[in-house]
């Protein structure tokens, strides 16, 4: 496939060219806050080099708040209107590769299996993913510990490697060819190819933790003492899951306004007390211990069993942002260091 070079001073032209064919979604700079993925407009400053913490791209595909349907009532009449997003050709730029892989996890949840979520599907259907490989690996990344990252490449349509004054655009899927048709792009030199390969090798070897034998999901035990250790310090906020690129749990609420009702969905997390609280007052996860266990077991064990993918892609946001420094890397190291997988009987 035809790889290309995008000189950084031509980035604006490149984005404009893409904008003639696609709705372009990219991390847009915000004041005092991580950049956020949105459909870019005039005046937006786009951050394409992956050098900073950004909101997870799931915020675009699975918005924090989204109207599902509206109901209007008149005497003797009830009208239900689903509110579906448009299925437009889109391209998402500037996401870290682990974030792009996290979208694979979301796809498993919302597109495959018994139920296909029409809202997610509409945004995702014609959306191409372009990942970025920043010039410097982020300290909190441990992507290569969670999976064989070579397998991730075909899941995106292109990867943009930051080579300083230029991006090396590696096309990784047949439809990704459509992304590099712009005449402002140049042919890569052999030095460029070497630079790209160097970055890829860095990514593959960065943050590889001692536990990484690719089998840690077999070693997570339900009754491990680590859950109590985490639960003791965990304050039960939603930072880890709301910032996580693959956490997908949501709540559905109905809101009445006069004669109409809005049904919307919004974020929810297994870390909140009311997440599993029943109407009867019973709560199957009555305190923090089962909640802390759930988040990690779900990512590293249940999702692997269900979908064949690991629910964590090593983006490091929870590592960086946890208010009490529960470091998921440390947790996995501890759990896996002391226990070899039991031999199959």
């Amino acid at each position: 496939m035809a790889d290309k070079i995008l000189p950084k001073d031509k980035t604006e032209g490149f984005i404009q060219a893409l904008g003639r064919k696609f709705v372009v979604v990219a991390p847009v700079e915000r004041k005092d806050a991580p950049a956020e993925f949105k459909e870019i407009g005039a005046g937006d400053k786009v951050i394409l080099d992956g050098s900073q913490m950004m909101m997870p791209p799931k915020d675009y595909l699975l918005p924090r708040y989204e109207t599902l349907l509206k109901v209007s009532t008149r005497p003797g009449e009830v009208e239900v209107q689903p509110v579906l997003p448009d299925e437009k050709p889109r391209v998402m730029l500037g996401m870290w590769l682990p974030d792009a892989q996290a979208i694979q996890v979301l796809d498993k949840v919302f597109l495959e299996g018994k139920f296909r979520d029409p809202y997610y599907a509409a945004r995702r259907a014609n959306t191409m993913l372009v990942a970025v490989m920043p010039a410097q690996m982020r300290w909190s990344w441990f992507c290569a510990s969670t999976d064989d990252v070579e397998k991730w490449k075909p899941n995106v349509d292109a990867i943009m490697y930051d080579l300083g004054d230029r991006f090396y655009i590696e096309v990784t899927s047949p439809r990704g060819e459509a992304l590099v048709e712009w005449e402002g792009l140049a042919e890569p030199s052999s030095e460029d190819v070497a630079g790209k390969d160097r970055l890829w090798e860095q990514f593959k070897s960065h943050g590889v933790l001692p536990f990484s034998d690719g089998k840690f999901y077999e070693q997570l035990a339900w009754d491990h003492p680590i859950w109590a250790e985490i639960a003791q310090k965990c304050i039960g906020c939603g930072v880890c899951s709301y910032m996580c690129p693959s956490c997908s749990c949501f709540d559905i609420q109905d809101e009445v306004c006069g004669t109409c009702v809005e049904r919307y969905r919004c974020r929810d997390t297994c870390q909140f007390e009311d997440f599993t609280l029943m109407g009867s007052g019973h709560n199957p996860r009555p305190d923090q211990l089962p909640r802390s266990r759930q988040r990690l077991m779900h990512k590293f064990k249940y999702q692997h069993e269900q979908y064949g993918v690991v629910g964590c892609t090593g983006c490091g946001r929870c590592v960086e942002l946890c208010p009490v420094n529960v470091d998921i890397r440390e947790v996995l190291n501890k759990v896996c260091a002391e226990k070899e997988p039991e031999p199959a009987v």
């Binding site: 915000r30 304050i235 939603g238 910032m243 909140f272």
Partner: peptide, 12 residues
């Protein structure tokens, strides 16, 4: 407007 309602402020 930036708030994502993670309630970290409240919990901490």
């Amino acid at each position: 407007s930036k708030c994502i309602r993670c309630y970290a402020c409240r919990q901490i």
